[in-house]
Design a protein around this nucleic acid. Structure first.
Length: 388
DNA sequence: CCGAATGAAAA
DNA sequence: TTTTCATTCGG
């Protein structure tokens, strides 16, 4: 593999699927998500895309990428051949999962502008646990990216060609706290404001200077090691070949929120679960940065499935990291730090002969509960007697 | 190519 | 503070 380097390019036409060679695809590794499949329609049983093991979302898996036959759709933004994409942030990861799951459940193709809106609503409604999960996933992606492209520096193109007239980004304060749903938040200038999505194509014109935009590129990575090395060290997920939903019960966006409400629905306040804000978190001081569950203890409802439990990362009081199955198999390094060797062995080693909570209950966690509010009956949620 | 979202990173 | 771009795919 040649020294990693990207070149600004003109995007005069889009690549057809055949124009992407395998090397191209390989170079992206699992940092690009396969744009579904070549066929314009529905997902397929015969897709070459390897879905992650049942217990993992695509983002927790270290090897979710296409096999040789995979192609990206023509909808992929055209970039220069060696363009290195940015690592996805937490929301993008979340959205991808959301998208994937949604596609799974409904064959109808959705306008992704709506998908984005729904995903954002789900994101805002998500528990801190879920958000934390995706933050960790994003962090892992970022680390992989750094290893794969040492020396990479994000260098966004100049604002809209040249002249000032860049897109203004609205302050992110337009939030409907009453209803807990995001208002339309035009972030890229007035053009996007309240434009009816189905409306006739607005006069497009303008933006002819767009093609001259600069692309991100790597700033000189003279001795970039072959990414393949690193990737080969990443263990495949265990041969759990069951082909169910790649998503855990709670760790996924769709399960948490999508099925419950329609597109334009908002979540009634009454349906928002009560968080136990009084719960103490003994580990609080030991979970630096974002790698915390936001000060909330995560407690399981009795009978919570193993999958759900595994969706969370935990920290021991001594600061060691308890990697749930997902993260362990995805070889996610301890978010706590890198120096300390001690990533504690996963308690899941106990082979879980029983499904008792106590078997897998992470260490000193009191029994509190934070479950996917929409996955169970609301009455079940407030089983106070059981909790305290 | 645009847009719809949020967030990281750079200018 | 403001801008791009990461993902996704119908329009």
């Amino acid at each position: 593999m040649p020294p990693v380097r990207t070149v600004p390019s003109r995007r005069s036409r889009r690549l057809s699927t055949q124009e992407i060679d395998d090397d191209d695809w390989e170079s992206c590794g699992d940092l690009l998500y396969p744009d579904s499949d070549a066929e314009p329609t529905i997902s397929e049983p015969t897709s070459p895309i390897v879905l992650p093991a049942a217990t993992s979302s695509p983002h927790t898996s270290s090897t979710v990428h296409s096999t040789a036959g995979s192609v990206r759709t023509s909808h992929a933004r055209q970039r220069s051949r060696d363009h290195i994409p940015r690592p996805p942030n937490a929301f993008i990861c979340f959205r991808s999962d959301y998208c994937l799951l949604e596609k799974q459940k409904s064959d109808g193709q959705r306008d992704h502008r709506f998908v984005s809106k729904d995903a954002a609503a789900a994101w805002h409604q998500s528990s801190e646990a879920v958000k934390t999960k995706y933050k960790l996933i994003a962090r892992e992606k970022k680390q992989q990216h750094a290893q794969m492209y040492p020396g990479y520096t994000y260098s966004p193109g100049s604002p809209r060609g040249s002249g000032g007239k860049g897109k203004k980004r609205k302050a992110d304060d337009d939030w409907d706290y009453e209803e807990c749903i995001p208002r339309s938040k035009p972030r890229r200038g007035s053009r996007a404001v309240a434009k009816p999505l189905r409306a006739a194509p607005a006069p497009k014109s303008k933006r002819t200077g767009r093609s001259t935009r600069k692309r991100s590129r790597v700033v000189a990575a003279p001795s970039a090691p072959s990414p393949d090395i690193e990737r080969s060290e990443t263990p495949e997920l265990s041969p759990n070949t069951s082909v169910e939903s790649p998503h855990s019960e709670l760790g996924t966006p769709v399960d948490a929120f999508h099925p419950t409400f329609d597109e334009d629905d908002f979540v009634p306040t009454a349906c928002i679960p009560h968080l136990n804000l009084d719960a103490t978190n003994e580990n609080k001081d030991l979970t630096p940065g974002e790698a915390t569950l936001a000060g909330h203890e995560v407690i399981y409802k009795a009978g919570t499935s193993e999958e759900t439990r595994d969706a969370f990362p935990f920290f021991r009081p001594d600061g060691t990291y308890y990697a749930p199955a997902y993260y362990a198999s995805a070889s996610v390094p301890s978010p706590i730090d890198s120096g300390s060797s001690a990533s504690a062995p996963s308690p899941t080693d106990s082979s879980s002969s029983s499904d008792e909570d106590t078997e897998l209950m992470p260490f000193n966690y009191k029994e509190v509960q934070f479950t996917n509010p929409f996955a169970i009956e609301f009455e079940d949620l407030i089983d106070v007697d059981r909790l305290y």
